[in-house]
Design a protein around this nucleic acid. Structure first.
Ligand SMILES: [Mn+2]
Ligand SMILES: [Mn+2]
Ligand SMILES: [Zn+2]
Ligand SMILES: [Zn+2]
Lengths: 132, 132
DNA sequence: TTTCAGTTTATAATGGTTCTAAATAGCTGT
DNA sequence: ACAGCTATTTAGAACCATTATAAACTGAAA
């Protein structure tokens, strides 16, 4: 299979559950944003056996740690993840809680002029909130 | 008192609890960032009667709705608020979960080139995550 | 002072996330 | 193929920030 090597190379055993989650997350034309509950629903729709919610949490966090998913900084009662791991930004539609990708070229270069002693910049995230 | 008019003009009754919370939030040299738990602690330290946690939540949300506080978009298990309601951005220290203000002049103008039909931009927030 | 909507409060409920510990499954060496 | 070992899965409990509830209280206006 397509993802077995990827997982093995990451030190993750290619279990049936992880491979199925890979298919839901990565066998798509476009990248997408999701919450754990949305992913759980997607898995139920596409796959015929059940995967425990705990496994979905575990797997998403494992994939995030390996850099296959990104977490997005939004205030919501749920955590948002992104299968688009390139450097990019987001519109956040307050009406329905949906995220829309904003490419770096749509924002322009961001140059942080201030430095904090002894700290490195790990990421720069721009969130553009949208209302009607 | 200093805050009675402010509250009345906002359509909020100047109750003892709200006035005391105003003192903790706004009687300071500098603005600051806080979670509800941190605010609760601050209130306990500065004031001698107890204010119910529900009242603190209610008041913070009322003040946010009136524009006296801002909510900050960070992923954390707790919601962060800001008494600095000017347009500005943040460093987020991943090590200790603390926020540091980044003035607009420290980031430079952000020009969002893409438009979403029928939507207006409500806010633009830049979050710069810091690691060691 | 009477009245009443607005507010406070203790407490319960909610819900996303994490923890637990037992069962299961993938991997390695034989 | 098998045994042995560790990683992983799982159901369910626990956790905990936040919100809902509904009864008591209070500020403002008549
Ligand atoms: Mn995570
Ligand atoms: Mn709020
Ligand atoms: Zn994205
Ligand atoms: Zn700030």
């Amino acid at each position: 299979m397509k993802y077995i090597e990827k997982l093995r190379n990451s030190g993750l055993r290619p279990t049936k559950q992880r491979l199925q989650i890979c298919e839901v997350l990565f066998d798509t034309e476009k990248t997408f944003h999701f919450t754990i509950n949305e992913l759980n629903q997607k898995i139920k729709d596409k796959i015929h056996n059940k995967i425990s919610l705990a496994t979905i949490y575990n797997t998403v966090h494992a994939f995030e740690k390996k850099g296959y998913l990104k977490q997005i900084s939004v205030n919501s009662n749920q955590t948002y993840f992104d299968t688009n791991i390139t450097d990019h930004h987001h519109f956040y539609n307050l009406k329905d809680g949906k995220l829309i990708d904003l490419e770096n070229s749509d924002v322009g270069p961001i140059n942080i002029k201030r430095k904090i002693d002894g700290k490195k910049i790990k990421s720069i995230e721009v969130l553009v909130k949208l209302e009607d």
